[in-house]
């Protein structure tokens, strides 16, 4: 293990991200716009919904607007993290290959990229979590942010996997859209889940557990540890798959 290479890779990848000012602006703008659109278009009527990860009988009642804001927060962090993961792996794939030819090990570059992704997702989760407080006060704000972070890491890992598998930029984006839009962007909305058919299918999708962490923390005092552990499991599986394909993509036969 060469710590110097990992730290150099981390530092330089972070600098690159920091110099993309329009990217940073959009990362801040998108959740803000999502929040305001949801705030503007949802009502304050009280709706019942199930905290499915606790039990199918655990019914709580909250304002539709508050529930929708938490849901869109999870979705926003998930979407943005998946595109960041894709971009980190895919954008400079040729240079990364060259770095491997020059002595870096694929997993050293991968570790540096992952550390940058984790830091970016953490900052994003804090920003989106903080933004939520402008609209209402969640029961457990750190728990909500933890759920946002989990959604970011699960979908960030999915983005890394997509980037390691697919060479083309558009194809990578479409692969993300294929899952993220329907999962994080639609099926995990508890109001939809309430009346959904084949709920088992929804429970197996990657955004299910992170959504449950944030919703449980936002509106109840129930423990979300189990949902958090399952989020880590999903993120870990996606990350290992991403690491495997990244290794195949960049390895040197010598």
């Amino acid at each position: 293990m060469n710590i110097r290479r990992i730290l150099t890779g981390f530092d330089l990848t972070l600098r690159q991200l920091g110099r993309r000012r329009i990217t940073i602006l959009l990362l801040l703008l998108i959740p803000t716009v999502f929040y305001w659109v949801v705030y503007y278009t949802t009502s304050e009527r009280i709706v019942p919904f199930k905290l499915a990860s606790i039990s199918e009988d655990t019914l709580i009642e909250v304002a539709e607007q508050h529930e929708s804001l938490v849901f869109i927060g999870v979705a926003a962090v998930g979407f943005l993290a998946s595109f960041m993961g894709l971009n980190l792996v895919q954008k400079n794939a040729g240079v990364h290959r060259r770095m491997v030819l020059c002595g870096y090990r694929p997993w050293e570059i991968f570790t540096a990229l992952l550390a940058v992704l984790a830091l970016a997702v953490l900052l994003l989760a804090l920003y989106v979590g903080g933004g939520l407080c402008l609209f209402f006060t969640p029961e457990n704000l750190p728990g909500v942010i933890l759920g946002f972070f989990a959604a970011g890491m699960v979908y960030g890992s999915y983005g890394i996997l997509a980037g390691a598998l697919i060479q083309g930029e558009l194809e990578g984006i479409l692969l993300i859209v294929l899952l993220a839009n329907i999962d994080a962007g639609w099926l995990q909305n508890p109001l939809f889940y309430e009346g959904a058919q084949n709920k088992e299918f929804i429970r197996y999708l990657p955004a299910y557990f992170p959504s449950q962490v944030s919703l449980t923390a936002a509106f109840s005092a129930f423990s979300f540890k189990k949902a958090l552990a399952w989020s880590a499991f999903y993120g870990g599986v996606l990350l290992l798959a991403g690491m495997f394909f990244y290794h195949l993509k960049t390895k040197i036969y010598r």
């Binding site: 060469n2 290479r5 890779g9 330089l12 040729g94 060259r98 770095m99 030819l101 020059c102 002595g103």
Partner: peptide, 27 residues
Amino acid sequence: GYCPQEALLFEQLTVLEHFRCFAAGYN
């Protein structure tokens, strides 16, 4: 030492940062 046909470089990094990056690779 391998010099690819297409300049494989990071657009957002400086010349100095490139040297630092590859120096770490070469140890």
